[in-house]
Design a protein around this nucleic acid. Structure first.
Length: 555
RNA sequence: UGGGGUAUAGCCAAGUUGGUAAGGCUGCGGGUUUUGAUCCCGCCAUCCGUAGGUUCGAGUCCUGCUACCCCAGCCA
């Protein structure tokens, strides 16, 4: 893939370069560690491109690891969706997918090791008591009354916890670190809690589950991860990550580095909020084309290459950021402009009747699939006396800025003839329904012989052979650039994010033997077929750049 | 003075032994064009959060200040 050839460097790669130069590591190993509690979104794509991209470029490897330590929030359907999305994005994980839950036995053993070393204790304080004793950001916490329980008792109590003798919340295992630490995460963090819950991987084997901070670093070490990349909010957690690795008997020493997560304008990228959009039916599901999920973008018509390119363009830093939608849109336009065949579709049709074209005549015009790439071949365009054109491409009168069809003026039908509008027919509301025209049969594939200039070109669909189709146009999901900052982000949902159009499309776009799945409908935008429907439904991925719209707004 | 982080154009982002501000997106001009698309050409930071200091020379070093983000889940 061309877009992967010039990956920009970033601070993580520079760290790796140094580690290699200093012979700290000979091979690089990364991991992408989602919790299977929702679908992947474009922010995950950034992490995926970073982790798998590094593995590729350094001839290392990258694991896919499900960080599944909280069975009550997770589901097997999410692990399947995540696998599919990672593969679709074009990446291959090393070996079989890994699961944190696959290390539960070892994790349990390391917990016992900490207890034996006097570095962990079973705490019977309630959750509220623990919270109160944790102190505040400016005040040290206080010791739990169970902090000095002897090792043998702790061992026995942890065993009872594990055996299911206590109900949820009755007690927990805590690391014994420093209740006065300026890092809140170091104030005797809970590392095991009781959850009598069924786990999608381990079934009912366990009723105690390790916490993230205890699990992640050990999982990294077990897998031999050299560089464990996560987002900025885990910077404080790194102290606990290192503490655990230092205090258990394990040889490998993975290092954690943090980068800033992606924020995208006019959408939300937090699983909690995305789950809410799905569950409260603000959208059609995880793969709603308006969703910033990988599945949603895919259904919208975004290609994996375009998403990878986007991730390459935005870079990886530690700066808080909010990327403009135009950055994403530019990536998919670049891809589809180059790779998408052209076709014609009329979304808001009015009829053109070519009065001097024989009623029983039908032609098959040949049109290139791409204006500059002949290798993409040609397709046949049916043409006859009646065609559909876009309502906004006709005006009874207009100044010369309007380069489309105007009464008594000429315009070219794209890939076909020059026509001239003679008169119109309107409905009871005064809307033009039909434009009666004449055509110049000398203008197929060439300019008028007498040298007269025809400035405009409009698209069309043959009325007799064109196919009825539905077109779905999407707008941003939210009305404000930072919906996550609203008190209630659902209040900022754009009520007009979906516009459905019923129109017509040239037959070639419905012929599966053409082998295309995404097109540029000329002058309208890039579209893909929505395979959720048997009838022809096309999603507009993104519109074309529209300077005409800007001219109109400005004037 | 709780601690951890970050500050380079509207947005993203290079800049790493101090040597005189890459690139992309957006925007704005102009050219080509049977897509008001694409493509092509040109323009867009005397200045790097701010105030000082060191230096022949600082975005890069030092000091003070300011702004913003993260941390008080038995979530990840």
């Amino acid at each position: 893939m061309a877009e992967t050839e010039h990956r920009p460097t970033n601070f993580v790669r520079q760290i790796i370069d140094k580690d290699i130069a200093n012979k700290v590591h000979s091979t690089i190993k990364t991991r992408f560690p989602p919790e299977p509690n929702g679908f992947l979104h474009i922010g995950h794509a950034k992490s995926i491109c970073l982790n798998f991209g590094i593995a590729q470029d350094y001839q290392g490897s990258c694991n896919l690891r499900f960080d599944d330590t909280n069975p009550t929030k997770e589901d097997i359907s999410y692990v399947n969706a995540i696998k599919e999305d990672v593969q679709w994005l074009g990446f291959e994980w090393a070996g079989e997918p890994c699961y944190s839950s696959g290390y539960f036995d070892q994790l349990h053993g390391y917990a016992i090791e900490l207890i034996e070393k006097g570095l962990a204790f079973v705490d019977f304080c309630s959750q509220e008591e623990i919270r109160e004793m944790r102190g505040t950001l400016t005040q040290a916490g206080t010791h739990s009354p169970y902090r000095d329980t002897d090792v043998a008792t702790n061992l026995a109590e942890f065993e009872k916890m594990t055996a299911g003798e206590y109900e949820d919340g009755k007690c927990c295992l805590r690391a014994k670190i420093d209740m006065a630490s300026s890092f809140m995460v170091m104030r005797d963090p809970v590392i095991y809690r009781i959850k009598h819950a069924h786990h999608h991987q381990t079934g009912d084997k366990w009723c105690v589950y390790p916490m993230y901070d205890f699990t992640h670093c050990i999982s990294d070490a077990i897998e031999g991860i050299t560089h464990s990349l996560c987002s900025l909010e885990f910077q404080d957690n790194r102290r606990l990550y290192d503490w655990v690795i230092e205090n258990i008997s394990i040889d490998t020493v993975p290092r954690q580095y943090e980068f800033s997560r992606l924020n995208l304008e006019y959408t939300v990228l937090s699983k909690r909020k995305l789950i809410q959009l799905v569950e409260e039916k603000f959208v059609d599901g995880w793969d709603d084309p308006r969703m910033p999920t990988v599945a949603g973008l895919r259904r919208r018509g975004y290609t994996a290459g375009a998403i990878r390119e986007f991730c390459a363009r935005i870079g990886v830093t530690k700066m808080e950021n909010q990327v403009e939608m135009s950055m994403l849109e530019s990536c998919i336009r670049d891809d589809l402009n180059e790779n998408g065949p052209r076709a014609m579709a009329v979304l808001d049709p009015i009829k053109v009747i070519i009065e001097n074209y024989p009623e029983d005549q039908h032609e098959e015009l040949v049109a290139p699939n791409h204006p500059s790439n002949e290798a993409m071949g040609t397709r046949l365009l049916p043409f006859s006396r009646e065609v559909w054109i876009e309502a906004e491409d006709f005006r009874e009168s207009a100044n010369k800025k309007f380069k489309r069809l105007v009464l008594d003026k000429e315009v070219r039908l794209r890939n076909a003839y020059v026509i001239k509008a003679n008169r119109v027919e309107k409905d009871e509301d005064g809307n033009v329904t039909t434009v009666y025209c004449t055509y110049d049969d000398e203008t197929l594939g060439k300019d008028p012989a007498d040298g007269r200039k025809v400035k405009g070109v409009i698209h069309w669909v043959d009325a007799s052979k064109g196919c009825a189709a539905e077109f779905r146009l999407y707008d941003r999901l939210f009305t404000v650039p930072s919906p996550a900052k609203e008190d209630d982000f659902t209040g900022a949902i754009n009520p007009d994010s979906l516009e459905v159009k019923k129109g017509y499309i040239e037959p070639s776009a419905l012929q599966s033997e053409q082998g295309f799945s995404a097109w540029q409908f000329e002058r309208i935008g890039y579209f893909c077929r929505d395979t959720h429907f048997d009838t022809p439904v096309f999603n507009r991925t993104v519109g074309l750049r529209d300077t005409w719209a800007k001219i109109q707004q400005g004037g």
